[in-house]
Design a binder for these strands. Structure first.
Lengths: 159, 159
DNA sequence: ACTGATTCTTACGTGAACGTAAGAATAGCT
DNA sequence: AGCTATTCTTACGTTCACGTAAGAATCAGT
C-alpha cells in the first residue's frame, strides 16, 4: 500500500467542473467524442479521476474553443499536440527514455503547436483588421459630430 | 416613370447570398429574428430587394459573428449602431436635416461603435495572450529538442 | 457496515442556427 | 402573353453541444 501510481491529489469530475467553470456533463461529453482522453484503466461504473494536468488540458480546450470558435471535431485534431506531450511525460516517468522516440514525440508536438499558432495568428490579424475598421468608422462619425457642433455651437453641451 | 426610389442597382437575395458567401435561407432567418432590417414596404409574396449598403451590413454581421462568436441575439443588439447610421442616411437623403436629431443619431452611433470596440479589444487581448502562451510553449519544446540533439548529435539532420 | 453525497450509465430533451422540401407566386425576358 | 429562373411562404428536419431525468452504483466518512 505504498508503491502505486495514485500520486498527486486525485480530483473528481465535479471538482474539475468547478475549477474550469463547466459541468460534469460537458466533461463526459468531451471524453465521449475523444476530445479528452478518458483514462484507460477505469472499471465500468467507477468514478473518473483527474489530476492537475487534466485540468490544464481542459482549460486549454475551452480557451481554444472560445477564441477560435472551431467545431469540437476540429479541436480534437488540434489537441493531439497535448496527447503527444502527455505521452512523452508518461514515457518519461516510466523511465523509457529512448532518445529517438523522444525526438519524434517532441517534433510532433512542435508541429501541432505550429498548427495552433497558425490559426491563432490568422485570428489575431482578422481581429486587428476589425479593430482598425471600427476605429476608423468611429473617427468618421466623430468628425461629422465635430462638424455639426462647429456649424451651430449653441445647442447642447453635455452628451 | 422617373421619380421613384428604385435607384442604385437592386440586388436579389440570391445575389446577396453569393456576394457574402451565405445562403438565402440564412438571410431570411436573420431578417426573421430582427438581425437584418427587412424593408418596410414590401408586399407579401414579393421578392426582397437589396442594395450595396445591405450587402455591407450583412458582411459586418458575419464578421462580428465569426470573430466574436456571439449568439445572434446579442449581435442584434450590437448592430443597432448600423441601424442608427442607416436611419441617419435615410433622413439625410430625404432632406430632413434637423441638426439636433442628427447629433442624437451620431452620438448614438458612436456609443454603439464603442460597445463593439470594447468587445473586439477584449478578444484581441485574449488572443494575444494565447499566442504568447503558445509561443512560449513552443520555445520550451524546442529547447528540449536542442538538448536531445546536443547530447547525441548523431541522429537525424532534417526535421 | 451504514449513510449521505457524488458519480455512473442510459436515454430522451433542448436551443441555436440554419437545411430542405413543396407548391404557389413573382420577375425578367422575348 | 408565355416561359423559365428565381423567390416566397410554410413547415418540418437536422446538427451541434450540451441539459436533464432516473435508477443504480460508488466513494468518503463515521
Amino acid at each position: 500500500m505504498s508503491a502505486r501510481d495514485d500520486r498527486e491529489e486525485t480530483l473528481r469530475i465535479g471538482d474539475v467542473a468547478r475549477l474550469t467553470g463547466t459541468t460534469p456533463r460537458t466533461i463526459r461529453y468531451y471524453e465521449e467524442i475523444g476530445l479528452l482522453p478518458g483514462a484507460e484503466g477505469r472499471a465500468p461504473g467507477a468514478h473518473r479521476t483527474y489530476r492537475e494536468e487534466d485540468v490544464e488540458r481542459l482549460q486549454e480546450v475551452l480557451r481554444l474553443k472560445d477564441l477560435l470558435g472551431l467545431p469540437l471535431e476540429e479541436l480534437t485534431e488540434l489537441m493531439a499536440a497535448e496527447e503527444a506531450r502527455a505521452a512523452l511525460r508518461r514515457e518519461w516517468r516510466s523511465g523509457v527514455q529512448d532518445p529517438v522516440r523522444q525526438r519524434q514525440i517532441l517534433e510532433e508536438s512542435v508541429s501541432y503547436i505550429d498548427r495552433q499558432l497558425a490559426l491563432v495568428r490568422r485570428r489575431r490579424d482578422e481581429i486587428a483588421k476589425l479593430e482598425e475598421d471600427l476605429a476608423a468608422r468611429k473617427r468618421r462619425v466623430r468628425d461629422r459630430l465635430r462638424n455639426l457642433n462647429g456649424l451651430n455651437a449653441d445647442i447642447g453641451s453635455r452628451s
